[in-house]
């Protein structure tokens, strides 16, 4: 039986490595998976924390974020959440938008919005954390 040679010049080793011509291969797939794994504990932590009565009002919530033990996981949650959203939305756009130019425009516009909102959120957390030091 012929191996897969007839469809191109790539060797079977090259194909099985799955890196493609841009040498990035499955990195996008991996990014979505790894961020999702990280988000499982971070999301559980955040939801459980939000349910705590003592830090639901303005002062309580600010005091809660002022602690590094809360600010750091909250920053991690924020960054990874936006990364996962950008990565997932890219997969959706790649599947449903077929015009190359429009696809790139939408993917990177949404990515830019995610980065922007992420930066704003992280800055807000830092501002609360450092502003509440006394």
């Amino acid at each position: 039986m012929m191996s897969g040679h007839e469809k191109g010049l790539r060797t079977p080793l090259k194909r099985v490595r799955g890196l493609g011509s841009a040498k990035e291969g499955v990195s996008h797939w991996w990014q979505t998976r790894l961020t999702s794994i990280a988000l499982v504990p971070l999301t559980l932590w955040f939801v459980v924390s939000c349910l705590g009565i003592e830090h639901t009002d303005y002062t309580g919530a600010r005091l809660w974020i002022a602690s590094p033990l809360h600010a750091l996981p909250l920053i991690l949650l924020t960054v990874i959440m936006f990364m996962h959203a950008a990565s997932g939305m890219q997969a959706v756009f790649e599947d449903y938008i077929h015009k190359e130019g429009r696809k790139l425009l939408v993917i990177y516009t949404v990515k830019a919005l995610c980065f922007g909102l992420c930066a704003v959120s992280v800055f807000a957390i830092l501002r609360i954390a450092f502003g509440n030091q006394s």
Binding site: T78, V120, A124, I125, I128
Partner: peptide
């Protein structure tokens, strides 16, 4: 989420 954290700041 961003609205919540920004107004909190």
């Amino acid at each position: 989420f961003t609205g919540w954290i920004v107004t909190l700041a």
